[in-house]
Design a protein around this nucleic acid. Sequence first.
DNA 1: ACGATTGTCTGACTAGAGTCAGACGAATGA
DNA 2: TCATTCGTCTGACTCTAGTCAGACAATCGT
Lengths: 304, 304
Amino acid sequence: MTSTTVLRRFNRTYTQRIGALDESFLGLGMPLASARLLFEIGTTQPVTVQELRARLGLDSGYVSRLLRGLESRRLVALSPDPADRRRRVAALTAEGARLLEDLDERSDDLAARLLEPLSERQRARLADALATADLLVRAATIAFEVVDPASPDARLAMGHYFAELDRRFEGGFDPGPLTEADLATMRPPGGTFVLARSDGEVVACGGVQALGDGVGEVKRMWVDDGWRGAGLGARMLRRLEDDAAALGHTVVRLDTNATLTDAIALYERSGYAAVERYNDNPYAQRWFEKPLTAPAAAARRPRG
Amino acid sequence: MTSTTVLRRFNRTYTQRIGALDESFLGLGMPLASARLLFEIGTTQPVTVQELRARLGLDSGYVSRLLRGLESRRLVALSPDPADRRRRVAALTAEGARLLEDLDERSDDLAARLLEPLSERQRARLADALATADLLVRAATIAFEVVDPASPDARLAMGHYFAELDRRFEGGFDPGPLTEADLATMRPPGGTFVLARSDGEVVACGGVQALGDGVGEVKRMWVDDGWRGAGLGARMLRRLEDDAAALGHTVVRLDTNATLTDAIALYERSGYAAVERYNDNPYAQRWFEKPLTAPAAAARRPRG
DNA sequence: ACGATTGTCTGACTAGAGTCAGACGAATGA
DNA sequence: TCATTCGTCTGACTCTAGTCAGACAATCGT
């Protein structure tokens, strides 16, 4: 059976038997849309109406009406945003928080009842399978996006990167101040900066800068800890190679620290060959290079 | 993380990102309910309206209207059932079959596109995880039901059982004719017959008969080949023990053939002890017994 | 033969989930 | 400062998805 077939078969089973988990939101005299909205407000307490609309992908009028319904039941409180009085921010009332907890508990009960007929061992097996599926499904739906390296999200991602190096290097890591000149290297022409997002959250990043003479350098590649083992690093690297090729580079280089063994393994798996030191990065102990033949079409599908 | 938590987390991920697979039914100017109905008709070509109603759990009036809609688009053809002219049977027209194929293809495409960002290895891992989850979720939602041993489904299940013995015994197996007297042993008082169904399909069975003196015997226990490894045998056995206890038995016995090693392992795992031959079944080489203490409350949760 | 039951259909509803076109006040830019 | 844009709200819709109460004909049980 192909994975497509398995996915579709699973989908049928799932929607038939577990789809009802959502409807556990129901049963408290609350339409699903309202419950979802309430839930969304609950996750990020004070939140603008605008944000809610974007996150749930709903019409402004619709959200407005739903909110009014929740407000009239005293489940959420709406107040104008002092920073911009056109905006309104929503927050749960005590009663709203209580209801949300209640819904949560019901959902838990329903899930527990679903699992009840299984033995401990089977439940563990199912949990394991679902955790794997969860990770991979999330990984499959990650969106890559070119952003300016000076944008807040890019800075955030690089901050994560530096913090990780600081944790992993024996003597720590000091990136120095992020200068505008440094950021400018990762802009066209010659450079780029790519973010990977899951649910809007930044989960990986990477940049390319031009070293001149058709040579690009991969920099600041980082993958969130929670995403290890999902192949995200390989995808980011491939993406950066594609982008480097599109920017006119024919070779990419990169340097790395000897302690980053997982990264080194990735580079070797991805067709990088060790080369001599090509820069004076004091934190680098290993240098790699890879020719970019066709626009990375050959590298597009890894051999699995 | 408990399995409940994992299930709920997965549910969120899933409905957010893959729930859309269903809506691929959409996009051809067809409401979901109609598409589901069309799909259901497609799986078992000539099917009565009654059957459709039962399978989709819909109101008779609603189904009638939906069918009329499909009929007016010439996607299905309705005709009275010659066997009972109150009933109407639905079948796809050529056009309906074509549309269904089209929807199927779209759904396939969507699934493929979803998996596209993953590497071969990841896809294989995901397929594996989903297949496991599929089996276990189906297993968790299997319904047990006491039926009369003379009912068509019970006969069908026993037929499967006999056919399997015939396949697995060296010299084959001849059950002889299924006499009414034989069936009567698996009826109250003293006896019972239990079916397990998944999606209405019979996937396991088992019976209890009274041997007298508070002793019950487990008979005709069978689990469908496709359901091995889902713990269904253990659950059926537990259920039969519970029922036997409820019928007043304090001990259950059973016999089996030495070639059925998986069954023997199950009995031993479930607390059965080997005893001397207690009957003259020519196909039996091993005999087991288990005391039923409290109403099998102790056996309700296997030790995993 | 005839009353009860069964299978399907019709008409009249309801509720949920959105969509679309403005209205209106607050903020912004030239 | 004044036209424009932005964020929210309102009113008037539409489309699904379903429920409920009968109506009607075919069939079954006695």
